[in-house]
Design a protein around this nucleic acid. Structure first.
Lengths: 181, 181
DNA sequence: GGAGTCATGTAACTTGTTACATGATTGA
DNA sequence: TCAATCATGTAACAAGTTACATGACTCC
């Protein structure tokens, strides 16, 4: 039976364009760049096995004395082609579910104080996020200077969230002004 | 077995604070405000039945001569309390998966032209979205004037996306400048 | 001594979508 | 005449998370 969506496959294949990696590495990468993507082991390991069976990735086992061996996967020619096809298709926005906005449109029921609390909490999140993103951006710039050809693109992803979060801070203040106590 | 997450339940309960509604109405509402939430029939109808069994909503059947009868649900006291508890909890951001950014961080593999195409396509989406959001905002303002107590909050949700989208337009141009042909 | 990291993997579960069945009515 | 709207509902599937098992090593 044909795959329908399964973006995890592409996320995995894509990561292997950076360098050969283990499932553990892939999980860690997405957890670290945190924000716009994440993969759980429950997705990664079964998918890696299937990609390997389909010949889209190759496997090399690094023997380790302690604990489980490291399985390092690399893109094959076939894998590169599958990835390439996907990369050339225009990305369509995935359905979003924004819980803050869901609560907000029931704001009449929630009451003034609760709405303000939601917005204040969101502001704090945004501020913290922006702080982290600034640090990551500086890091990506350093990587660019060192000649990492992927760093420029990762920086763009970071700046996406910087732009959005900054705008949302403005939005929060606008709303809070409207809901003045 | 206790429910774990299931935001659909709350989305449904919340809609019933606006007025008694059918499952069909609820689906339609979310499809129309399109953007930050959506519910499928496959979620709504089973959930409505369960909420009814738990006594969180009441049901009234409107007989229709043609086609299936209309089942109109309303919030009960118990339902209002469950909703209220949820509304008072601070919203935590749901995990996001942004396919555009996923593709973008593999941009070195995709190539210059493909990256530019992705960004151009995104710009078009954003521009179209902003156009729609402006119309919806005007509509919500009209509803506010007519005394709809929920319209103010719906307008805030619309403005959230206006702010974000406008900022992302700037981001697109920034990226396109960086990827000048 | 305790937390965190390295490392693989699976089973049980939740959450959600899609496509279908049914069928009359309305408007372009 | 064709598409959309009204209206309920289910079955099959897809996608994804969480929690667990296993166990050594390193740093505070």
């Amino acid at each position: 039976m044909a795959q329908k969506q399964n973006r995890s496959r592409y996320a995995i294949l894509g990561m292997l364009t950076y360098q050969p990696m283990s499932g553990y590495d892939i999980q860690k990468f997405f957890a670290d760049i945190a924000g716009f993507w994440q993969e759980s082991y429950g997705q990664i390991y079964p998918n890696l096995r299937q990609l390997w069976q389909e010949g889209l990735v190759s496997k090399q086992v690094e023997e380790r004395e302690k604990g489980p061996n490291r399985h390092v996967y690399a893109l094959t020619e076939a894998g590169q082609q599958v990835l390439q096809t996907w990369l050339q298709e225009t990305a369509e926005p995935l359905p979003i579910r924004n819980e803050l906005l869901l609560k907000l449109i029931f704001g009449h029921q929630a009451g003034h104080a609760a709405n303000r609390r939601q917005l204040e909490a969101f502001k704090e999140q945004l501020t913290a996020d922006i702080g982290n993103l600034n640090i990551v951006e500086a890091w990506q710039e350093a990587q660019m200077d060192e000649g990492d050809p992927h760093a420029q693109y990762r920086r763009m992803a970071v700046r996406y969230n910087l732009h959005a979060n900054q705008a949302l801070l403005t939005w929060c203040d606008e709303c809070l002004a409207e809901l003045a106590p």
